[in-house]
Each structure stands twice: as structure tokens, then as C-alpha cells.
């Protein structure tokens, strides 16, 4: 039995410790916001946070997550109140939307570590996430916008 804390909720799961975290989240915990895209850490659609750091859950054995805090898109904020989600909705970033959970989770780490990212910082933080629809220009705009929203929030 493995104990996982996902979005603040503790669960005990009986699975092969080598099973990728992605499938535990999707198939055992019903958290389907985290997506399967490539299974080999190429596309970033499965990005979640492990103790605050972004990981590709499709290649992360569930054993690595045992006892750590896992945050998925469902835990970023369900009510779209996170500055990134506010910016994403304001700019209408998604098209098909399939990659966007991963994009948002990657962007969340970027903004936490760099509240005022330049375009180059965005390139450094976001290049692990593929968007087949080509929403990159809007992702860039939305990250800048989220940074501004965060700054406004602090100055208030």
C-alpha cells in the first residue's frame, strides 16, 4: 500500500510501485484533468507538482510520490481563481484544450520562481509543453498577464 497526498487529500492505494503516477491519478483517483500525451516526457500534458516542483507524471513512478504532496490541475484552483487561470480565461488561451492542464502547471512553477518573467524566461520555463493547436502566442501573453495580476494583487 502506498500513501499519496493529492490536492491535500490522503489516499492509500494498492498498485505496482513502478506504475506511473499519471495512471494512478487518472484511473485510481479519477483525476482526469491530467492528460496522457506521449508517455515519455516529451509533451508535458501530464505535468503535475510534486512538493511544488513540476514533474512529468507519465514517467514518474508512483513510488516517488509516496509521502509527498501532489498537486494536479484540479488542485491549482477549482474555481479558476489562480492568477494563471484568470489570465488564461481572459485571453481565451485554449483551443482543443488537451494540453492546457500541463501548460498551466508548468506556468505555475515559472511564476512562483520568477514573478516577472521575460519572454526568454517563458521560453525557458514552457518549452517542455507541446501545444498542437499552436496556442503559444496566447500562452505567452497570458503568463505576462498573470504576472501583472499577481503584482496587482500584492500591491493592493
Amino acid at each position: 500500500m502506498l500513501t499519496l497526498v493529492v490536492n491535500g487529500k490522503r489516499s492509500s492505494i494498492d498498485v505496482d510501485p513502478d506504475m506511473p503516477l499519471l495512471w494512478v491519478l487518472r484511473e485510481h483517483l479519477g483525476l482526469t484533468g491530467t492528460k496522457y500525451g506521449c508517455g515519455m516526457a516529451q509533451c508535458g500534458a501530464c505535468t503535475v507538482h510534486l512538493d511544488g516542483e513540476a514533474v512529468r507524471s507519465c514517467v514518474t513512478p508512483v513510488s516517488r510520490a509516496a509521502g509527498k504532496n501532489v498537486t494536479t490541475i484540479e488542485g491549482l484552483s477549482a474555481d479558476l481563481s489562480h492568477p494563471l487561470q484568470r489570465a488564461w480565461t481572459e485571453i481565451d488561451v485554449p483551443q482543443c484544450g488537451y494540453c492546457q492542464s500541463g501548460q498551466l502547471m508548468a506556468a505555475a512553477v515559472l511564476l512562483r520562481e520568477n514573478p516577472h518573467p521575460s519572454d526568454a524566461d517563458i521560453d525557458d520555463g514552457m518549452a517542455g509543453n507541446i501545444c498542437r493547436c499552436g496556442t503559444y502566442p496566447r500562452i505567452r501573453r497570458a503568463i505576462h498577464r498573470a504576472a501583472a495580476l499577481m503584482a496587482e494583487g500584492k500591491s493592493r
Binding site: 515519455m40 512529468r56 514518474t60 506556468a107 515559472l110 524566461d121
Partner: peptide, 15 residues
């Protein structure tokens, strides 16, 4: 860097 730290993809052993 950011969400692109080595440990995002690289585990403690080869996949």
C-alpha cells in the same frame, strides 16, 4: 530551471 528542472523527467534510474 522553473518547471524544467532535470528531475521533472529524469528519475533515479533509467526508464
Amino acid at each position: 530551471k522553473y518547471g524544467m528542472k532535470c528531475g521533472a523527467c529524469h528519475q533515479k534510474e533509467n526508464i
